[in-house]
């Protein structure tokens, strides 16, 4: 599904990613862990196509297509979804209106007409039930006054509605209490299938108790320095990141 080859990227001239190689196959869950400042969120933004990040070298290939030249919205239309670490607020625009716009814009890009209101309603009902979302929540302004948990749940709700091929969850666990974490993780698990893939970016191991990864990567100084199975996450939880740094610097 996703192939990243020798990816280098910088922001404002400062190199952040220094040669990432990553392959995520359909049906897989990959976790990317690493200490603060190792480039995890940058990697997510670069895959999603944020303009401020300049790719200086390397390739990002989604389903055999090099997406380097595509804009962020085109990448979204191609099935990339990023669950933001800090979802932004749009006052006066309801959750429903926002997701409706997102779905219809994506359909438009594919040459389809607007989704009929009836189908939209049905889908909203199904997905909100799946994620235990109160219907009232959907009429509120996007992320305005939302608690940390509500924001993340809203991100996963949008993911459910947009049905992406590749979902990147950027620090989805940050700011969540244990109950909210479980609801969000359950949601992601329900959406996971053999036809899509998930990249979980996290600092801590606790989210991975719920969303169990097939592969765990450790990112350090803009490179993947270690990959392994889910037991690697446990090891990191126990020992911290210092031993990785030592290994790299040795």
């Amino acid at each position: 599904m996703l192939k990243i080859k020798d990816l280098h990227a910088s922001v404002e001239g400062k190199p952040i990613l220094n040669g990432i190689n990553l392959e995520v196959k359909t049906g897989e869950v990959h976790a990317i862990m690493g200490p603060n400042g190792s480039g995890k969120s940058t990697l997510a933004s670069v895959i999603a196509g944020k303009e401020e990040y300049e790719v200086t070298k390397g390739e990002i290939i989604l389903e055999n297509e090099d997406i380097e030249e595509l804009s962020a919205e085109e990448r979204a239309h191609n099935g990339i979804f990023l669950s933001f670490q800090y979802p932004i607020e749009i006052p006066g625009v309801s959750v429903t209106n926002f997701i409706k716009t997102a779905i219809n814009e994506t359909r438009k890009a594919k040459g389809l007409g607007d989704m009929p209101a009836k189908d939209m309603l049905k889908m909203i009902r199904e997905k909100s039930e799946l994620l235990e979302i109160d219907r009232k929540f959907l009429s509120r302004s996007l992320n305005e006054g939302f608690s940390g948990g509500e924001k993340k749940r809203n991100e996963v709700f949008q993911m459910a509605m947009l049905e992406p091929k590749l979902a990147i969850l950027d620090e989805t666990d940050s700011g969540l209490d244990i109950d909210a974490l479980r609801i969000v993780a359950n949601g992601v698990n329900k959406l996971k299938s053999k036809d899509n893939a998930v990249i979980v970016i996290t600092h801590y191991q606790r989210l991975l108790e719920y969303i169990v990864p097939d592969v765990v990567h450790v990112l350090y100084e803009g490179r993947i320095v270690k990959s392994g199975g889910k037991e690697l996450a446990h090891e990191l939880e126990e020992k911290g990141y210092d031993w990785i740094k030592e290994e790299v610097n040795a």
């Binding site: 804009s71 962020a72 919205e73 990448r75 933001f84 716009t101 814009e105 947009l162």
Partner: peptide, 9 residues
């Protein structure tokens, strides 16, 4: 960028 990422130009 948030909107772009959701497919909205």
């Amino acid at each position: 960028f948030y909107c772009n990422q959701r497919g909205i130009d």
